[in-house]
Design a protein around this nucleic acid. Sequence first.
RNA 1: GGGCGGUUAGCUCAGCGGUAGAGCACUACGUUGACAUCGUAGUGGCCACUGGUUCGAUCCCAGUACCGCCCACCA
Length: 1041
Amino acid sequence: MPMEKTFNAAEAEARISAQWIEGKAGRAGAHAKPGRPAFSIMIPPPNVTGSLHMGHAFNNTLQDILVRWHRMQGDDTLWQPGTDHAGIATQMVTEREMALHQEPTRREMGREKFLERVWQQKVKSRGTIIGQLQRLGASCDWDREAFTMSGAPGAPAGEAGNFHDAVIKVFVDMYNKGLIYRGKRLVNWDPHFETAISDLEVENIEVAGHMWHFKYELAGGETYDYVEKDEDGNVTFREKRNYISIATTRPETMLGDGAVAVHPSDTRYAPIVGKMVKLPLCDRLIPIIADEYPDPNFGSGAVKITGAHDFNDYAVAKRNNLPCYRLMDTRGRMRDDGAAYEVAVARAREIAAGSPTTESEVDSLNLVPTKYRGMDRFEARKAVIADINAIGLAVTVMIRETDPETGSEHLRLEPVVESKPIMQPFGDRSKVVIEPMLTDQWFVDTAKIVEPALEAVRTGRVKIIPESGEKTYYHWLENIEPWCISRQLWWGHQIPVWTAMVPSLKGEVGSWRIGVGSEIPLGEAAQFLRENAYDEKALGGQLTRAGLLTMQFCAASAEDAQKQIAKVWIDRTGAAPSNLVEVNAEPSEWPQFLHDTPNKGGDIPFWRDPDVLDTWFSSGLWPIGTLGWPEQTPELEKYFPTSVLVTGQDILFFWVARMMMMQLAVVEDIPFHTVYLHGLVRDAKGKKMSKSLGNVIDPLEIIDEYGADALRFANAAMASLGGVLKLDTQRIAGYRNFGTKLWNACRFAEMNGVWEGHATRAAPPSPQATANKWIIGETAKARVEVDAALADFRFDQAADALYKFVWGKVCDWYVEFAKPLFDGDQADETRATMAWVLDQCMILLHPFTPFITEELWATTGTRAGMLVHADWPTYGTELIDTEADREMTWVTGLIDEIRSARAQVHVPVGLKLDMLATAMDAQARAAWTRNEALIKRLARVESLTDASSAPKGAIAIAAEGASFAIPLEGIIDIGAEKARLQKALEKLEKEISGLSGRLSNPKFIESAKEEVVDEARANLEARSDEAAKVRAAMARLAELG
RNA sequence: GGGCGGUUAGCUCAGCGGUAGAGCACUACGUUGACAUCGUAGUGGCCACUGGUUCGAUCCCAGUACCGCCCACCA
């Protein structure tokens, strides 16, 4: 059956994809050859939130190119597929979906039911994603598909796996090494999702904000001389004041102020440092303190300090031992819990007066005045501003107003409100304003594990491409902050830490209250207990049964935790706890357990931390986790560290840096040798693709319209290093055409019986015809170029080389040369050559355009196997015949010249011309003779005869070693020919003047490299030669008039 | 405020010491033994600006302007 005119992508892709999958073409180690190295890539696991977008298509195309390339070379290749549970994003998507279908809310459902629901979402999205990857042609090992939450408790059937175990083990190990700790810290709190998030999940966006100025009055009616001076110390302003002026962009937080801070060097406030001010709207006094933080040149130079709601203020509060009063609940509303305001504020005054307290007590005190309780934070802001204005404590300016009716002037005081852009933090998922919130969270002590990650890149053990990525990497890691890894979500790996009641040792009670209200970070306490608890002397030598305390146990399972708990009980009391019961408790309920125990009904409660881990904690273990760690599997042995990580530069910190730190911390090895970072895919205009802009391009739509190969080739061609990748469908269409071009070259071959009698064509033939010799050399050049480009991750250069070779060399020239050759004596060797060359095109293009090449492979011969497992060629320059190369350059150059001249002089395309050779050296003559049929056909020349000189009215053609003339009196457009020659001459003269200018400069001769000088001389000679010929032709033309 | 990158043909981008290339778009011609998802020929560039290094700079260096991106606590 003859080939169709075009490749039917829609039909063939589905069929071929199924063949690859069923034949396990991407199986780990498929087509591996002895003695070849391993090559492995871990897919950046897509989130199970929906479907893949163009960025994924791009990213996975590059991976597949590398994987197919290595597999064909015989490397033991693994491309590990899988998906990421993406805690916050997936929980969000699922809840959105639930709302859409009027299902019960998450809280109504309860944790267990909700998790079942999310698993459904996971299954659905996973199916979509895997289907998309397969449509793209991704040759992953589908039998190894992984999921970052596989094997988690509650996973439905079919979701078994060991990733969860690996994550838990790492947590436990890192905990035991003191790399993970729990602590009450100010974290970024997302009031929408009601969870802590890491610094990286916060987007700082500039918004139009306001700054309000309030007066805080000195206590006891005191006053002071407020004096401003200029740089020279001259007094510029003096006033008796009874207040200090503060500025704020967040007035509602003033309710939780713990102090007003001024810079120690600020002479304006020196008289009142240490004095107390009355906190407006609150029945509290707060001190004026001196701290380095305030900038005396900004605003009034005095800063209100709200330790619980601002990162800077928190640092100041810590330094100065100020209480941090939390004002908001988890939803960002003003607190409405705890004791009545009067009671709370009374206690706050006691604390301020020196009454001993604990961090947990301070946290439990609700100092939001009754009026504001329960208000949304932005409502509270308005209310606070209004109330401050009402009591006259806003800083005001005097405004002169003219009454429009009476025309009378009067003065009015107006509060100072500056409008200014401020950087406001938003949750990257929720898009709501992030609230700094003082909560108990788990942290990775990144400072302790960062150094090996930095070192690995500094020493070149891990290479980041492009290099600029390394700088960014250093910059972030060198300034790394503790990583908050706990999330108050339900979907994720639950933190493997249990809290249990254990008997307290003497002296422990009061000082060792661990859990809510702990004085010591839990990690430290636990470590201390591990180190000291069994040494009775260290803890006073005696057990007391008087009390119980909470102790935390980090364990891989509840059973392990129970064993640990029992051991502590045995060590302390000599007996295991009678009735250890696991209870479910939210953190807010923990204090109840603390107070209701001991021994309520004889049960000893223990409970698990309800929080889950940050998604990136688990995806940070992707390389080892997917290979079966902690078991020492053969795959781990073989494929780890992985070869390359291909990922977007936007997740360098989120993922790449964390994988580096975690792998090095856990298995003391790098996760990958090379990191290839690519830019973000944008639309044709460079705009970010977003649903709201409506410019999202669905990769499946592109594949439907142009085929997967076209998308893939476009992706490869776009993959230049750095910057934004603008995706243009016109370009994709162009590469679809490229596929068609190859298809039709094969179709031409088929029509000419090229495949017949050339079933085996693994080795290049040894033809006689120059054109055949030449194309073999061109093929070798292409192979060398493609390999070099891919070795450097220059997908664009590889794609470019292939495009130029297949279209520019094979189709434009070689197929045309073959036409006359098929009619001659060398028809058979030409068939053999073309069969081989087209095979090479398929092989070399296969990593880029796997579908069409696989289809052609099957169509054009009887093959031992599929193209996906064909051998990648290794031939190189030895296949280049320099003589043939030179000759064909001469031939194609001559054809170009004749065609160009014909077109410009408006010779009818169909007209075959007689040509004269006015000069021809031996080499030129030989070249002509050997390729006469080719030149005649492509240049539409009827005959060539020798002539002593060019006749009048002829167009002149110059070639190396030869001059030709085409007599066209009466046919040619003399004006056009004159113009053509004039233009050619101008160009030549420009070149000549440049060259001779250089050559006449003695310094050039002296300093330039010899070969450069020689080249310039040769060029000058050649150009001068040509120019002479052109001038002669112009002279002849002039005679014609 | 700090860091990184960019500025080359109408558009999207390569090139990166010897005075410029591709694809698309555009123009003209074209049913030549595969291909109109095509062919042939062409038009189109003070390589952002200003200095410097060099025999020679789009390329190296410094500065300027503009544009991106990332990071950052100025209340």
